[in-house]
Design a protein around this nucleic acid. Structure first.
Length: 777
DNA sequence: ATGATTTGTCATCGC
DNA sequence: CTGCGATGACAAATC
């Protein structure tokens, strides 16, 4: 009780003395201004205003339900359970002075040296300590609390540093594509599975919930982390293990992928093309062989549209559309396609400023590199400078590499295997005009046109499906229900409210920020925070005033902050006040409620009262007017049984009872409203993420489309060249070559190749065109 | 001073 | 039926 006060004040005093002893200039104003939160944490433990979530989590974990320091009254105080909770509360609120001193010694130099960021170190230490107590979850959740407490975020940023989700996603997507082309690494397929993505999102939820919201980078970081976890899962490695080496591994994977791509058939793993491709490849050497083998030559192309593989058809359709776009600028196409998605508001919003350039500049494939850099920064957040340096260094590299990579991917990957380099880029486009043979006609008209037609439909149809799937996933795993379930518990738990209340009491600013916080964070903060704090503060501070503490606090505030109305000052005051109140018996509280004796100077006292009055909620005013003998916090947060018990202890008038019930109702409703709003916000944020993911998927599909389109063109070119070669070697009975204008090679369905007159071939080609169309009808 | 946003409150519904 | 939470709607407070 009183010891708490002592601890607080003594802690400050000792702190100051220590500083002076150490030889550090004691500038309370600046220190408080710049380091109030850490200081507060040192003395009081992490304040709710500073890290609400953290605190609540802590409270939830340790105290669970029913241990609310505010709700501890004298009667119950001596029960074992209360004692235990009290002890715990003391632990949290008061750091042993010796320990405090140690921190100060350590910290002060650091603060003086680092200057602008001393608080982060402090916060980190304190937070880590808490995390140790509360368990790993906390750290993650803390990172989610947006709250605008940059220091906290920085510290916690270790978990979720700034990362552009797009890049990471792109990276994974690219890897996935590469995987698909690599038989050996086939395990990675999960990425394409939406079920797997759901898992990923679940992880997201757990890690970040809605926290990413506006601040974006913490959330993105978490998301990126989740993605990295996902990657890990695909590689079969445990995700924690991969975290530290994320960058290297990614880089390696890229190299590996490139190497594999060059070494393997580009379609080897693709379910879409393997048959056709293999047939084509087989057909190539068969040119010298009897026509029977060459049947395959056309079959892939002719059957391409009719292929039993629906997927192939879809892809071809997709490609055809892309072809139109890709034709214009071969190499740039992919970049354009990729650029479009990042341009959208969501992706940009959620990506960090530093990362954004990557998105915009990097072509699709290169995104993977960007992702690497981000991953790196993500996983090495402990070193503050490191991420920055890494990103900065990587950023310039990414664009340059991107182009090269792009070219390598585009040409090497798909075409390079079949064709000499020179053919890759240009041959496709030039091949068509150069070889106006029947084959070209068949391909372009029969297949590509059709494909392009289908493409539109498919393109539009595909995304909705994905969207629905994703939505379902999000709905299912949306943290809302979870949050709601959690929030009540947190509310019930009394402990956190006291600590958190400080933050909440500065209702406007803190609460507003808290509303934006993620679901996980929200559940912790919301409950106890808002209402209880107000009541607490008023009671406490009044009590303080009576005791004579108020002046000090006011001074403190004024010194540290010019604007006392803001978070930094108020939470601290409230926090202190809370500690005081805990110690007070109901009677003391009563006295506190009553106008404090005029033992203090009028001016400051009036200010204090005004200030406090402002802080008080209407219900608190009413309660005070009605002389309700216990705090609104108790009224609201006590479980029904204890609440009734409490009521029974006092002789209360009907009016008082009515007011108390109203207060309880309103208080609970207030918290419910806060929960509701947070849920709403989370829902919106989740939807935003859905949209973002969908856009990312779309971008990925477009990229794949481009790749397939490119490969398709290459195949066409190959077939054409083979056709030319075969046709050129054909000789009539007189040993003279057939005229391409008069004869054409016809590929029968049974695999045979026939040399037929041109006119007949054209007719059949037309017939071939109609077939699929008719089928579609 | 005004509009937008946040927050508190009430009414209502459903569990 | 009561208590409680969720939520839409409105008003007050705040920015």
């Amino acid at each position: 009780m009183l010891s708490l006060k002592k601890y607080l004040t003594e802690g400050l005093l000792q702190f100051t003395i220590l500083l002076s002893l150490i030889g550090v200039r004691v500038d309370v104003d600046t220190y408080l201004t710049s380091q109030l939160p850490p200081l507060r944490e040192i003395i009081l433990g992490p304040s709710s205003a500073y890290t609400q979530t953290q605190f609540h989590n802590l409270r939830n974990t340790l105290d669970g339900y029913g241990i609310h320091p505010k709700s501890i009254d004298l009667d119950n105080y001596f029960t074992a359970r209360r004692l235990l909770s009290q002890v715990r509360a003391l632990d949290r609120f008061q750091v042993p002075t010796t320990e405090v001193n140690a921190w100060l010694v350590h910290r002060d130099p650091e603060g003086s040296v680092s200057g602008s960021q001393p608080s982060s170190g402090l916060a980190l230490e304190s937070s880590s300590g808490l995390q140790d107590v509360t368990g790993p979850d906390n750290g993650v959740r803390e990172s989610e609390t947006e709250q605008g407490f940059s220091e906290d975020l920085e510290d916690l940023g270790a978990v979720a540093p700034p990362v552009s989700g797009d890049l990471t996603k792109e990276d994974i997507d690219l890897i996935d594509i590469l995987w698909r082309q690599d038989i050996d690494l086939g395990a990675g397929r999960e990425i394409f599975d939406y079920s797997h993505r759901q898992k990923e999102q679940d992880v997201d939820k757990e890690l970040q919930d809605g926290a990413e919201q506006e601040d974006t980078w913490p959330g993105e970081g978490a998301e990126a982390l989740a993605r990295n976890l996902l990657v890990d899962g695909e590689t079969g490695e445990s995700f924690p293990a991969q975290v530290p080496g994320g960058e290297d591994q990614t880089a390696l994977s890229l190299e590996e992928c490139l190497r594999l791509l060059e070494a393997t058939c580009p379609f080897g793993e693709n379910a879409e093309f393997p048959a056709d491709i293999s047939s084509i490849t087989e057909a190539v050497p068969s040119e010298s062989e009897p026509p029977g083998l060459q049947n395959n030559l056309l079959s892939p192309l002719l059957t391409g549209t009719e292929s039993p593989f629906d997927l192939e058809q879809q892809w071809q359709d997709l490609m055809s559309i892309m072809e139109m776009q890709a034709m214009e600028v071969n190499t740039s196409t992919s970049e354009i396609l990729y650029d479009a998605p990042p341009g959208d508001p969501l992706s940009t919003n959620y990506s960090l400023a530093p990362n954004t350039p990557i998105n915009q500049n990097v072509s699709l494939h290169q995104a993977s590199l960007g992702g690497c850099s981000q991953d790196f920064s993500l996983f090495s957040p402990e070193v503050e400078s490191l991420p920055v340096a890494g990103s900065s260094t990587l950023l310039p590299l990414v664009p340059s590499n991107s182009t090269s990579l792009n070219s390598t991917f585009g040409s090497t990957n798909l075409a390079g295997l079949f064709f000499p380099p020179q053919l890759n880029g240009t041959a496709n486009d030039t091949a068509g005009p150069e070889l106006p043979d029947p084959l070209g006609g068949l391909l372009d008209e029969a297949m590509l046109d059709e494909i392009s037609l289908m493409d539109l439909a498919i393109e539009e149809g595909f995304n909705p499906v994905q969207a629905s799937q994703l939505e379902e996933e999000f709905d299912s795993d949306s943290g809302l229900s979870l949050d709601s379930s959690h929030s009540p518990s947190s509310l019930s738990s009394s402990e956190g409210s006291s600590s958190s209340s400080s933050s909440s009491s500065s209702s406007s600013s803190s609460s507003s920020s808290s509303t934006s916080s993620s679901a996980s964070s929200s559940f912790s903060e919301e409950g106890a925070v808002g209402y209880s704090s107000d009541s607490e503060t008023l009671d406490l501070e009044e009590a303080e005033g009576a005791v004579g503490y108020q002046p000090e606090y006011s001074k403190f505030c004024r010194m540290s902050y010019q604007d006392p109305s803001q978070l930094s000052c108020l939470p601290y005051l409230e926090h202190v006040g809370h500690n005081h109140t805990y110690n007070m018996a109901p009677s003391a509280l009563d006295s506190a409620d009553l106008p404090p004796p005029s033992t203090l100077k009028k001016g400051s006292k009036e200010k204090q009262t005004d200030f406090l009055d402002k802080q008080m909620s209407r219900d608190e005013h009413r309660a005070r007017a009605m002389k309700i003998p216990f705090t609104n916090d108790k009224i609201i947060n006590l479980p029904v049984e204890e609440f009734n018990e409490l009521l029974s202890k006092y002789q209360l008038s009907e009016a008082q009872l009515s007011l108390i019930r109203d207060i309880r109702r309103r208080g609970k409703n207030k918290m419910a409203a806060q929960n509701c709003r947070k849920r709403k916000l989370d829902t919106i944020l989740n939807l935003e993420r859905d949209v973002e993911d969908l856009q990312r998927d779309k971008a990925r599909l477009l990229r794949e489309k481009v790749e397939f389109l490119r490969s398709l063109r290459q195949m066409k070119q190959k077939v054409q060249s083979l056709y030319q070669e075969v046709f050129g070697r054909l000789r009539d009975e007189n040993g003279r070559p057939y005229s391409p204008s008069q004869y054409a090679l016809q590929y029968a369905g049974d695999g045979s190749v026939l040399l037929i007159p041109r006119t007949l071939a054209d007719q059949q080609a037309r017939r071939q065109e109609r077939k699929p169309k008719d089928r579609r009808k």
